[in-house]
Design a protein around this nucleic acid. Structure first.
Lengths: 238, 238
DNA sequence: GGGTCGTATATTGTATAAAATCTTGAGTCA
DNA sequence: TGACTCAAGATTTTATACAATATACGACCC
């Protein structure tokens, strides 16, 4: 299988490969990523590797210090809460604008994603699960006339995916998400936009809570003296 | 003057140079950016130029199509409103978390920024004005325990800067912003956080309105049949 | 005459090699 | 003993050269 069929350039391929390697924990948080080693591992030169690293820095997965190199960025409770606060704010807002504009073709696409979703759950394929989950959410918002917000949410979903991986993602949780997605589709089809937005907010909050329950202890072990970050709510301004 | 003193790498230098060239309109929206030409213009090889272009794509200033090249991204009413909606949501939220934690050193820094601000206004230096404006806002939020939100707002401020440039930025408007910034400092020092957040929201909205008054016509000329984008408000969910 | 295929040219993408920068440790001097 | 210098090694950054890809245009077939 030649992966170039899906990727226009080598750099884009390395971006995906490296991202997966980080998400699966093959390169754990804090690990150094040496261009030389990566280039050899993937059988390419260092140029595509460099460009991939820059891309991943923009996504927040790695941190690059000039002349020193790239390290996998650390996970932090503060960022988890920040990311999920942002999702809780931005995603319902996008849905409110997008849902009324979704047409038959969009709903068919959503159903197709749901089908693949079920497949990946059955196969216990956590890797696929995360990307399909992001795909589903973005498809929901695709009609919103807010390109910048969509780009931001896309990157937030990437980050969420990373955090979701550190727990073993019980298939029970994955299936709960699938059912909630189905409910979302129904609400949107019935044009119950207000209700769909509230449901979406609760969905995001649910994922956060599941995550914190598992991840909280993991992070606590790594940094036992970390100051308890106030669980800033998404509604602080209302 | 060796610019390397301020920039750790050539790529970083080119990023700043190119960004300025785009913001000032030297490379107008829709213009093609050929790596070869840029490399020759700056007297460097194409590698740093490539990396600069990727960085600028992450910032949203250019759009890259594989094997076709980079073009300066178009300005659009939809994006203006999206960006300012997001600022109206995210910036007060950050301030609410940061303001109570600002200490004496922070306020001194803010005052220093204000001084430079006045200087650039007196000198009619629009270029500086934009970056100092961003610096001020970010300094206000620096104590918020929300790194991801800060990064997002930083990029939104960059984009706002670009839009602000297309109007000639009347020095009256710049001075109004300066006075409002002074008011913000006072409110934060008095620990009137709630009031400061509301004031900040109005400040952002004021800049948006000024901008739309001038930019609306510019864009209307370029795309006369553009569908009127609904001026989505920031409060749609409350 | 219309459409499709193939070639020429320009531009981008990648590999290889050279230059610059940072880190580390030995060695020297106060 | 402690701190400082500086040279060697490793790593990143940049330059140069080569390969791959897309676009435009003309020839050729239907």
């Amino acid at each position: 299988m030649n992966p170039r069929l899906k990727h226009r350039t080598l750099s884009a391929l390395i971006v995906d490969e490296l991202r997966q390697s980080i998400l699966t924990g093959e390169h754990p948080a804090g690990a150094q990523l040496r261009q030389d080693a990566l280039a050899e591992a993937y059988g390419v030169s260092r140029i595509p590797v460099r460009e991939a690293l820059f891309q991943l820095e923009a996504e927040g997965l790695v941190r690059i210090v000039p002349h020193k190199g790239a390290v996998v960025s650390e996970l932090s409770l503060a960022e988890i809460n920040d990311v999920f606060d942002l999702r809780g704010i931005l995603e319902p807002r996008l849905l409110a604008h997008s849902a009324p504009l979704l047409d038959a073709a969009d709903f068919e696409r959503l159903e197709q994603i749901q089908a693949r979703f079920s497949g990946s759950i059955a196969a216990r394929n956590v890797r696929e699960w995360g990307t399909i989950n992001a795909e589903f959410h973005l498809a929901l918002y695709s009609r919103a006339p807010q390109p910048r917000s969509q780009a931001i949410v896309a990157s937030l979903l990437h980050t969420s995916d990373r955090y979701t991986r550190v727990q073993l993602s019980s298939s029970a949780a994955m299936d709960a998400a699938r059912r909630q997605h189905a409910e979302l589709i129904e609400l949107c089809q019935a044009r119950k936009t207000e209700k769909a937005c509230r449901f979406l907010f609760d969905h995001v909050e649910g994922v956060r809570k599941d995550l914190l329950r598992v991840v909280g202890r993991v992070l606590a072990k790594k940094a036992p003296a970390e100051s308890p970050v106030s669980r800033s709510t998404a509604r602080s301004r209302s």
